[in-house]
Design a protein around this nucleic acid. Structure first.
Length: 657
DNA sequence: TTAGCCCCGCCTTTACGGAA
DNA sequence: TTCCGTAAAGGCGGGGCTAA
């Protein structure tokens, strides 16, 4: 079989006998191949599970290499990383992959699936095509990895100098668990407090607020009246249809976040106030007048004009207000000031990570403190946003990992924010069982986990400081409170977190850790994407790569498993590096840069992950929907427990936003 | 393929009313 | 008087999309 000569171009695929399979396979066709290729791979693995030499993580050894032209420097580096990978093993892995594909293709139902999928591309797919699809996928997957990696390297503007001087022989026999020294909290008055549950909902308050704001927007629509672009159509409707139009508008606005609605209303108020003071007709402005208003906002901050222009576009779209936002005369005033530099949150230090886990493991820590610490660790090892954690339900628990369902993601597809699943390792850098600690508190307070649609419950009573918390509310803690409570906690622990010169507790401190470690581990582009879907689209190469690589990830049946194993690998790597640091330098707190020379190679970390995963998740996964956990069945550390939630949970609406 | 814009949810800060 | 709860608004991150 031949491969397309150049990435992204159309090309012919030839079978081994030199016959053209088809002409001009486009990238879209290739995407389709990827989709059912994943199906194929999943089915093949089910059949091939008995093969003992198959590693749990897709390592370099499991992927046959293509004869792509590569620089010797790169080849040397990769060789060093892969360690024990040999041509023989590559060949064996390739052969195994082919065998698995053929085994899966022999199943009648699967052949039918592939035939049906193939018919979407070719009019009359025959058995040859079906068979060739199997083989094409195994090579295409590897080809995509290499093409993406080479492209990424060619666009890498600021290559990081990495050192892999620390061989496995130099590392001490890394302990599976870091020592968890008893750590007395500075303020003992709240440390032993246990929490009780207090039912409380916030849904109605949010709905009422949304309704109020939506009504205000409708009032603006009426106020704009004939000056608006939608008014003529609206007036042409019958009274019944005008009511229907109003209802549809209100409904659509209520679906938007409250912050967006309130921003639209307040910006409209500021605009009309300025118009009043400046003698401008607010709903019949000239482009010059709108531009001058945007320019006047510069004193509020470097991005204030851009934010205002965004809202003007929103008002144009939703209310029909005419702000001429599409004209350059207006838009050029709504830009960020040149020279403005973004300053993202600094990743949490490894010392802080360890310290939070030590507090979590300390039996003298109170429930509120433990819940805060657990949330920080969840954010870190899960590599998710705080808002997503607070919209997530635990759906599966195994010996080595947890799987969650977030009922609303960030990405929008035609205006709809689709839900998504995410996974994380069950154990932290110190080896602590995160599920055990978290679930014991939640189960004690609420009696069960299946109805919980958030990770961190709000504290009760309201309006109290951390030391006076008595219980947990059946509602998600809002971000502002998490930040405030965390600042208090960090202050008590003597942790110093600053951003832009201010003491703070940015949730992104946690979320940026694993992507940083993935970079230190020299992850491949697709692996980076799997860890946190962290895409730098300001680099065009990465945008293209993210599209290309997201496709097979999206369709992969094992993406959660792969993501969790990659996250586990990073946690283990950090653990090994930290142990090496302590062996050499004692208790001195290292930065991530300090750990770079001690960073273990990937093969070592992967072996450790495999050693820690005695059974694959597919082995312990249960299909019994009644096996949901309860307070009585809370698993203990090391227990072989796995369960699934009933599917009905996925259709449940969110508690609070 | 690439550069760049659009859009909007999320993050963070600030200000203020009011409860403790 | 202190500090908590909340709203408002600026700022940031990143997916979606398209013209060149």
């Amino acid at each position: 079989m031949a491969l397309p000569a150049e990435s992204g171009r159309r090309g012919d695929f030839l079978d081994t006998g030199g016959h053209a399979v088809t002409e001009n396979i486009s990238f879209n066709d290739f995407a389709c191949l990827g989709a059912f290729g994943m199906i194929l791979q999943a089915k093949a693995e089910l059949k091939a599970q008995a093969v003992p030499s198959e590693p749990s993580i897709p390592t370099a050894e499991a992927s046959p290499r293509l004869p792509l032209e590569r620089s010797s420097e790169h080849a040397d580096k990769e060789k060093a990383e892969e360690g024990s990978a040999t041509p023989e093993r590559h060949g064996n892995a390739h052969q195994l992959s082919r065998q698995k594909c053929m085994a899966a293709a022999a199943q009648p139902q699967f052949q039918e699936d592939v035939r049906r999928a193939a018919s979407q591309i070719w009019d009359q797919p025959d058995q040859i095509i079906v068979n060739q699809l199997c083989e094409m996928w195994s090579l295409a997957n590897v080809w995509a990895d290499h093409a993406a990696q080479l492209t990424a390297q060619s666009f890498d503007e600021h290559p990081v100098s990495r050192s892999y001087a620390c061989s496995t022989a130099q590392l001490p026999l890394a302990r599976q668990h870091l020592p968890i020294a008893p750590r007395a909290l500075p303020s003992a008055k709240f440390s032993r407090r246990r929490c009780t549950a207090t039912p409380q909902g916030t849904v109605s308050q949010n709905v009422q607020h949304s309704s109020r704001l939506a009504e205000k927007l409708w009032s603006l629509f009426i106020e704009i009246g004939v000056a608006g672009s939608l008014w003529a159509q609206f007036q042409g409707l019958s009274e019944t249809l005008q009511l229907a139009f109003r209802e549809s508008k209100l409904d659509s606005w209520k679906q938007l976040p409250i912050s967006s609605l309130s921003r639209a209303v307040s910006t409209a108020n500021r605009w009309t106030t300025w118009c009043l003071q400046s003698g401008v007709l607010p709903w019949k402005p000239t482009p010059l007048e709108v531009g001058l208003w945007l320019r006047s906002l510069r004193r509020r901050g470097p991005t204030a004009p851009r934010g205002a222009l965004t809202v003007l576009r929103f008002l144009q779209l939703h209310l029909g207000a005419v702000f001429h936002a599409e004209l350059d005369e207006v838009a050029r005033h709504g830009v960020i000031e040149p020279g403005h530099e973004e300053k993202p949150a600094t990743p949490m230090t490894i010392s802080m990570w360890v310290q939070l886990e030590q507090v979590l493991a300390d039996t003298s820590s109170g429930d509120a403190v433990k819940m805060l610490c657990a949330t920080w660790i969840f954010l870190l090892v899960g590599c998710v946003r705080f808002a997503h954690i607070q919209r997530s339900s635990l759906t599966q628990c195994s010996e080595t990992g947890l799987e969650f369902f977030c009922n609303r993601g960030k990405a929008r597809v035609r205006g709809v924010q689709a839900p998504f699943r995410w996974s994380m390792p069950r154990h932290g850098i110190t080896g602590i069982d995160l599920y055990q600690v978290w679930s014991s508190i939640v189960l004690k307070a609420f009696g069960e986990l299946t109805q919980l649609t958030f990770i961190l419950p709000d504290f009760s009573p309201s309006r109290v400081t951390l030391d006076k918390v008595r219980g947990l509310n059946a509602a998600a803690m809002p971000l502002w409170k998490f930040v405030r409570m965390s600042r208090t906690l960090f202050r008590m622990l003597g942790l110093d977190c600053h951003h832009k010169g201010r003491s703070t507790a940015l949730s992104y401190m946690s979320r940026r850790v694993l992507p940083t470690l993935a970079d230190m581990s020299n992850f491949k582009p697709r692996e980076l994407l799997a860890v946190g879907a962290w895409v730098d689209n300001k680099r065009p190469s990465m945008q293209a790569i993210s599209w290309r690589l997201a496709m097979p990830l999206r369709y992969s049946d094992k993406k959660l498993l792969v993501a969790r194993q990659l996250k586990s690998e990073l946690v283990i790597a950090a653990q090994l590096a930290f142990n090496a640091w302590r062996t050499r330098y004692g208790d001195a707190a290292p930065t991530w840069d300090d750990l770079l020379p001690l960073w273990p190679n990937r093969a070592l970390a992967q072996r450790r992950v495999v050693a820690n995963n005695p059974r694959r998740i597919s082995d312990v996964r249960l299909d019994d929907p009644d096996s949901s956990p309860s307070a009585e069945s809370a698993p203990s550390v090391g227990a072989s427990v796995a369960w699934l939630l009933p599917t009905s949970i996925f259709s449940r609406s969110t508690l609070a936003t």
